[in-house]
């Protein structure tokens, strides 16, 4: 497999804080002052180059760096990625030069009744060598064509896709190893999966999940909330609520492990007003500052202890 000219170390690592920008918030995002470092848009919403949405995106780009999050690339599709789709993504990428590009570890393209079909959803991958090979080949192809690394996001899934030969974290770690892609770690997805699989301690499971991936490959965090499920029902990752307390807590832990990578509030359904969304982002920033401060205190303590040890020895 060929390798990227740009290694994942070049993915921006500053502690940027962003929000997912949806159409209902365009006006406020353009007209109100807010301390947002970047916004993330869904790529497919801007494939129609002449639309009013694209004109608005041009205005947004004057104010914020834009991260491009695609939802349809289907990098794990055994059928490959539709060339027309990829061409549109490349055109959009060239038009807006996004600060980050990401998609999901899922499949979308396949065949149905002898026709090519797009699933219209993020369908789960089997964590097998066959699944990994397809995901790595497609990711490599996309990165080569875009000329830059992409971040691959862990999925919330509602059923097992097939035979699992490894854990999700082993699967994603090996993907990073083979393609030099980065990881977009969706903290909410880890928690949703843990709860839907009835893990005894979802937060403990999620922390272990974070421990098990290569920290230096993490290029972004997603934070979100979900509608609580009824008795005996699965949680649906609907991004319809404020970030849950569990997710804030996991964010704090993840920052302490992976450092201050770009972090984004996702809210797609039951949209709040812009200020509420911005307030969530401000909370993320506070946590990031606190962790950075405690890290620098820890570093200072270590440095101080080392100095004392050195002078004692002297």
């Amino acid at each position: 497999m060929s390798h990227l000219p740009i290694a994942h170390q070049n993915i921006p690592k500053q502690g940027l804080i962003g929000v997912g920008l949806r159409h209902a918030h365009f006006h406020d995002a353009l007209n109100e002052t807010s301390l947002i470092d970047f916004v993330e848009v869904h790529a497919e919403n801007f494939f129609a180059r002449g639309s009013l949405a694209n004109e608005l995106l041009n205005q947004v780009m004057q104010k914020y760096p834009v991260s491009l999050h695609s939802t349809s690339m289907g990098l794990g599709s055994a059928a490959g990625i539709n060339t027309r789709y990829l061409q549109k993504l490349m055109t959009l990428t060239n038009d807006i030069n996004p600060v980050l590009i990401s998609d999901h570890a899922c499949f979308t393209w396949s065949q149905w009744n002898n026709h090519n079909v797009h699933a219209g959803d993020l369908l789960p991958l089997e964590f097998s060598e066959a699944g990994l090979r397809v995901l790595a080949e497609n990711t490599d192809r996309v990165q080569q064509q875009l000329g830059r690394p992409v971040l691959i996001e862990n999925l919330s899934s509602y059923l097992e896709a097939g035979p699992s030969e490894m854990s999700e974290t082993e699967f994603l770690s090996e993907l990073v190893n083979r393609t030099q892609c980065g990881l977009l770690v969706d903290l909410n997805n880890i928690l949703v999966n843990a709860r839907n699989r009835h893990m005894e301690d979802p937060v403990c499971f999620a922390r272990q999940w974070i421990n098990d991936i290569p920290a230096q490959s993490v290029g972004e965090f997603h934070l979100a909330g979900y509608t609580p499920a009824g008795q005996g029902e699965m949680i649906i990752d609907d991004h319809s609520q404020p970030v849950s307390e569990e997710c804030w807590s996991l964010f704090e832990y993840a920052l302490s492990v992976c450092g201050p990578v770009p972090s984004l509030i996702e809210w797609d359904n039951n949209l709040p007003d812009w200020q509420t969304l911005v307030h969530q982002a401000e909370n993320a920033r506070k946590i990031m500052h606190r962790i950075a401060l405690s890290d620098s205190v820890s570093t200072a303590e270590v440095f101080h202890q080392q100095e004392e040890t050195t002078s004692d020895a002297a």
Partner: peptide, 17 residues
């Protein structure tokens, strides 16, 4: 589980659609 990955993905698509 005895089918190729592509067929397994098609099976899920078929089940959904």
């Amino acid at each position: 589980h005895n089918h190729s990955l592509a067929l397994r993905q098609q099976f899920l698509i078929d089940s959904i659609f």
